[in-house]
Design a protein around this nucleic acid. Sequence first.
DNA 1: TTGCTGAGTTAACCGCGTTAGGTTATGACC
DNA 2: GGTCATAACCTAACGCGGTTAACTCAGCAA
Lengths: 216, 216
Amino acid sequence: MGRVAQAPAEDVITPPARTRARRGEGERLRDEILVAAARVLAESGSEQAMSIRAVADAAGVTPPSIYMHFADKTDLVYAVCERNFTELDAYVESQLAGVDDPSERLALRGRAYIGFGLDHAEQYRVLFMTTEFPEHYTPEKMSEMAGYQHLVDNVRECMHAGTIATDDPEVVSVGLWALVHGITSLLVSRPSFPWPPVDTLVDHVLATYASGLSRQ
Amino acid sequence: MGRVAQAPAEDVITPPARTRARRGEGERLRDEILVAAARVLAESGSEQAMSIRAVADAAGVTPPSIYMHFADKTDLVYAVCERNFTELDAYVESQLAGVDDPSERLALRGRAYIGFGLDHAEQYRVLFMTTEFPEHYTPEKMSEMAGYQHLVDNVRECMHAGTIATDDPEVVSVGLWALVHGITSLLVSRPSFPWPPVDTLVDHVLATYASGLSRQ
DNA sequence: TTGCTGAGTTAACCGCGTTAGGTTATGACC
DNA sequence: GGTCATAACCTAACGCGGTTAACTCAGCAA
């Protein structure tokens, strides 16, 4: 690396900008990495392009430092996606505010789920359309993130109200989940396919399924 | 990897075994690569593990040779998956043999689609649950592979028979596709989730949806 | 026999995830 | 105020991955 004469302030050198954390504040870096990783993921739009090295750069840190807080890349990717997806359930619930009719709530729930998924496409892909995932990403965590329990509760309300005739809330809930996931998933993975307008599709599918559920 | 004393003929060296193709027979290698790649994919079970180098080894060839027939890795992966998936449509149709009732055919179609997807999980993932795909993998190709046109025809039959009340075959077909894809996709990506028994789930979902379709 | 070209190979580039082992600054303790 | 353990990093490297440039070599036409 020949050193050349140069204007002094030039590449001297974007010094990490980051100041080393004080004792006991090591966790600070974890957050900074997560923020940086989220930015890289959003900008690149692909899990692959979100490389450890790119994230390290964005965080003003060297690659090995990342391994102080994340076991491996999968772990980091999932941490980022989970972080953004803590909002999913909350967002869905927020869309139901003021609506009391269980069936109406169910429909709104589906629409909100799909909307959120499309708005966070790559994260949705990582969380729900991928095969390799870290050990700590358990089925419980997955269903919790998807707001599965709230869905089951809603289904039960519909059963009591008589708008769902089947008597197995689990099967009904999984079926509903599969339905909205199917739409979200297809749209996420093949955005260029000539799908019908999303709203039309969603309305039709949800209405059809609801109608089917209402009568055994 | 310590080398152990062994019978001489062991690693000497499985010489390529392959004889160079004659002039004009270059295409031969393409097939051999596809076969080898399919084997590697089946054995490793993951697109990632199916590396160019592993495929080249399995084909008795050096890595660069692969680029004579495939633009890049994505291209190869898709070629392998498409090859195996030429059977999808044919398989689904074969499951309908002897069944005339359109509604019954529709249900069988769904079951067959899901079954095939689960039997070729990683390929299904690549073809329908991935974001990066080669240019030549057009929407037309995708829908053709999924037997979409046959589905639309089937839906039309149901409309004429009066078992589907909606009048837009495209929307209905896409909805049905999303439904079966949703089930397949969830099962493929999260096989360890405590899903209800597949048959129960599929039967319930298809019956429910069919019932919904039958009445506007 | 020459020369062209198709069918491969060798060697290398660069980026990636990951690890072993070094460095530096902080702060508790004497 | 000096010592020193250790938390919080960094440097250097490994091995693997996709990919490419450039070479070799066999087959064939003239």
